Amino acid sequence: VPQRAWTVEQLRSEQLPKKDIIKFLQEHGSDSFLAEHKLLGNIKNVAKTANKDHLVTAYNHLFETKRFK
């Protein structure tokens, strides 16, 4: 089981690129989880459509539901 890579403050910070969060989610989330949160596909394309709040919610949801690969 992966550990949380970032704190809530870090997740919301401008310093953390959306692409980093997407990469983490794609590496650790199950396909059904990723599909549900519309996070499947090319990281660049996902970054265009997903806002930061959406990614933070998905990140927290992944750990709450433990839907890891």
Rank of each mutant, 00 (worst) to 15 (best):
G29Q: 00
K38H: 13
V56R: 03
L39R: 01
R4A: 08
K18L: 08
F63M: 03
Q3A: 10
T49Y: 14
A47D: 09
F68A: 02
N45A: 13
H37D: 00
N45K: 13
N51T: 11
L25I: 07
Y59N: 01
L62E: 00
I22N: 00
V1D: 12
T7E: 06
S30V: 05
I21P: 00
L40C: 12
K38C: 14
E27K: 09
R12M: 15
F24P: 00
Q26P: 00
I43D: 05
R4S: 09
E27W: 04
V1K: 06
G41P: 05
F33W: 08
H37V: 06
V46F: 04
Q10R: 03
I43A: 09
L16F: 10
N60L: 15
G29N: 01
E64L: 08
V56Q: 04
H28N: 13
N51I: 08
K23M: 10
T7A: 04
Q15K: 14
V8M: 09
L25T: 00
F33H: 02
K69D: 05
L34E: 00
P2T: 04
S30Q: 10
E9Q: 06
P17D: 15
L34Y: 00
K69M: 05
N42I: 10
N45G: 11
V46C: 06
E64H: 07
N51D: 14
K69H: 07
Y59E: 01
V1L: 14
Q10C: 08
V46K: 04
E14L: 06
T65I: 03
S13T: 04
N45Y: 15
R67S: 15
E36C: 08
K19G: 12
E9A: 05
E27Q: 11
A50I: 14
I21L: 05
L40N: 12
K48R: 13
K69L: 05
Y59R: 01
W6M: 02
V56F: 04
H61F: 09
L25N: 00
F33P: 00
K19R: 12
L25E: 00
I21N: 00
L16R: 04
F68K: 02
Q15E: 13
L40Y: 10
E9H: 04
R4P: 14
T65M: 13
E36T: 06
K23Q: 11
E9F: 03
H54D: 15
G29D: 00
K69A: 10
E14Q: 09
E36H: 09
K18Q: 06
L40W: 10
L39Y: 01
K23C: 09
T57S: 11
I22C: 02
H54V: 10
N60G: 08
L55D: 00
E9L: 04
F24M: 03
G41K: 06
H28W: 15
F33Q: 00
I43G: 07
N51R: 07
T7Y: 03
Q15G: 11
P2V: 08
Q26I: 10
V46M: 07
N42L: 11
G29C: 05
